Amino acid sequence: MDEKTVLELQQELQKLKKAQVRIKRKFTFMLSIIAMLVLITATLAWFTLSNFASVNDITLKISTAPQLYLDIENRGTDVSLWKKVLTNDMVNTALRAENAPTLDQQLMDPVTTSNGISFQSRSGNTRNANSTTFVEFKVWFIATEEMWVHLSGDKVQVENNDATTSVSTTETGAKADVVRAIRVSYEDSGSAAIWEPNKGAAVNGQTTFDVSTTYSNDTRIFHLDKLTPKQITFRIWAEGNDPECDDDVQDANVTIQMLFAGTDDNNSLFE
């Protein structure tokens, strides 16, 4: 191989190396763009207009299946003094007792939580209940048998009215996606179970469950001893990290129905 051929090969090798460097740079740039787009997509779940609230009209109906009762106050061990259904008015009584806005006055801006108890804003600041953030109130439960309490997807008659568990809205189009952004947690003794209606991919480390007509250890919310009242803290919020919690669902209304049912240790339903 003569000197000229060697020189030409060296020049071609140099060109190839330069081309490889350019390809690497372009690839790195493309990865950076993709990473930015992923970040932007993630943050779009939060409202861009912070002076609007996701939900401004909340309707609640909370019912219980056989052998399970509830009330805003502890009524003792005489189950005849307890209720089978809680309405907006009853929940409003509890909110007024805490000097909190009633359900028709509540506004929920997006928040997020990992445990269903402590909440943060998009910037990571702590958010307090019932202040254009999330709704919080307490409910007492009592049962005539020792049981595990679950949310039930069954449709039953309670006091001659249909009862089930669901989240619905009268909104249409993209605004109706609000039903996917709502979360409800139930705190018992420092830990909380989180109900995620229309459950999707997990966000912010949350462990959630969706309602079902079958019962397992994973759908247990709390435990009740026989004729022993227990107070449970309810929290309702719009999950800012949910993909559906964006500008489309601002100022939406939502109706939340909850039907609680009890099972034994084998997750067999009390009837």
Rank of each mutant, 00 (worst) to 15 (best):
121 S>V: 02
120 Q>I: 12
156 V>W: 00
118 S>E: 13
122 R>Y: 13
96 R>K: 15
136 E>S: 15
152 S>R: 02
130 N>Y: 09
114 S>P: 05
164 T>H: 11
121 S>Y: 05
150 H>S: 05
170 T>I: 12
111 V>C: 13
97 A>V: 00
131 S>G: 03
194 I>E: 06
167 V>G: 02
115 N>V: 00
187 E>L: 05
125 N>D: 13
191 S>F: 02
167 V>H: 05
191 S>V: 12
144 T>E: 05
103 L>P: 03
140 W>E: 09
145 E>A: 11
164 T>W: 13
164 T>Y: 13
133 T>L: 04
192 A>G: 10
149 V>Q: 09
148 W>Y: 14
103 L>M: 06
138 K>H: 13
114 S>C: 05
100 A>E: 10
185 S>I: 08
195 W>I: 04
131 S>E: 15
97 A>W: 07
173 G>H: 01
133 T>S: 15
195 W>D: 00
112 T>Q: 14
104 D>C: 05
115 N>A: 07
167 V>W: 02
115 N>K: 08
127 R>C: 13
176 A>I: 03
178 V>M: 01
185 S>V: 03
129 A>H: 12
184 V>R: 01
173 G>I: 06
104 D>V: 12
120 Q>E: 15
160 N>E: 14
157 Q>P: 00
126 T>K: 13
111 V>E: 05
94 A>C: 04
176 A>G: 01
178 V>P: 02
123 S>M: 10
110 P>H: 02
124 G>H: 12
190 G>F: 09
144 T>Q: 11
145 E>D: 10
193 A>W: 07
185 S>A: 12
145 E>R: 15
190 G>T: 09
145 E>V: 15
158 V>I: 15
119 F>M: 07
187 E>S: 01
178 V>L: 08
187 E>C: 01
159 E>G: 00
102 T>D: 06
190 G>S: 05
152 S>W: 00
195 W>T: 06
186 Y>I: 01
100 A>T: 03
130 N>R: 04
124 G>C: 12
135 V>D: 02
106 Q>P: 04
154 D>S: 12
122 R>V: 06
183 R>V: 04
138 K>G: 01
114 S>F: 08
174 A>I: 02
